[in-house]
Computed example of a mutant assay.
Amino acid sequence: MRKIIVLAAAATALLAGACNTIEGVGKDVKAAGTAVERTAKDAK
């Protein structure tokens, strides 16, 4: 039973870390999209 609790805690910690990483990637993609949008407007 103790091993299951330890594994569940480790899995929870990994998932929480992954959420932060995915959020950071989303922000980077949004910033890149904004830059492309500005460049397209300037090229008009």
Rank of each mutant, 00 (worst) to 15 (best):
A9H: 01
R38C: 02
A8Q: 00
V29E: 05
K30G: 05
R38N: 13
I5P: 00
K41G: 07
T34K: 09
I4M: 03
K30L: 12
A31P: 03
E23Q: 09
V6Q: 04
C19G: 05
L15A: 06
A32K: 13
E37F: 01
T21E: 13
A40L: 02
A9V: 12
T21G: 04
G26W: 04
E23R: 12
D28Q: 08
K3N: 09
L14P: 04
V25A: 14
M1P: 08
N20G: 14
K44I: 03
G33F: 04
A9L: 08
R2K: 00
A8V: 02
L15V: 13
T39R: 04
V6L: 05
K27P: 00
G24L: 02
G24D: 08
E23P: 00
A43I: 14
E23G: 12
G17R: 08
V6G: 01
K30F: 04
L15G: 09
K30E: 06
T21S: 05
A43K: 11
A40T: 02
A11E: 02
E37L: 01
G33C: 07
G24V: 01
A13C: 06
M1D: 08
N20R: 09
V25G: 04
A9I: 08
V6K: 09
K41V: 15
V25I: 11
I4Y: 03
A10G: 07
G26L: 03
G17I: 08
E23D: 07
N20C: 11
K30S: 10
A11H: 00
G24N: 09
E37C: 01
K3P: 09
I4G: 06
K44R: 04
A18C: 15
V6M: 01
G24I: 01
I4V: 08
T21H: 03
T12W: 10
I4P: 00
V29T: 07
E23N: 05
T34E: 14
E37N: 04
E23M: 05
A31I: 10
A40M: 00
T39F: 06
A32G: 03
A43V: 15
A8M: 08
R2Q: 00
D42I: 05
A31K: 09
E37V: 02
G17K: 08
A40G: 02
K44C: 07
E23S: 14
T34P: 01
I4T: 11
R2Y: 03
E37I: 01
K3E: 15
A35C: 04
D28A: 14
N20M: 13
D28S: 14
K41S: 13
G33D: 13
C19A: 15
L14H: 03
K27F: 08
K27G: 11
I4D: 13
A10Q: 05
A16V: 11
V36F: 13
A9Q: 04
A11V: 01
M1F: 03
I4S: 08
A43G: 07
V25M: 15
A11Q: 01
C19L: 10
A16K: 01
A18V: 15
D42E: 15
V6D: 03
A40H: 02
L15Y: 07
I4N: 09
D42T: 15
V36L: 09
A13V: 14
I5E: 14
G33V: 05
A31N: 15
A35E: 15
I5V: 14
K44Y: 12
V29F: 09
E37M: 05
A31V: 12
A18N: 09
D42Q: 11
A31F: 07
D42L: 12
D42W: 00
V29C: 04
K3Y: 06
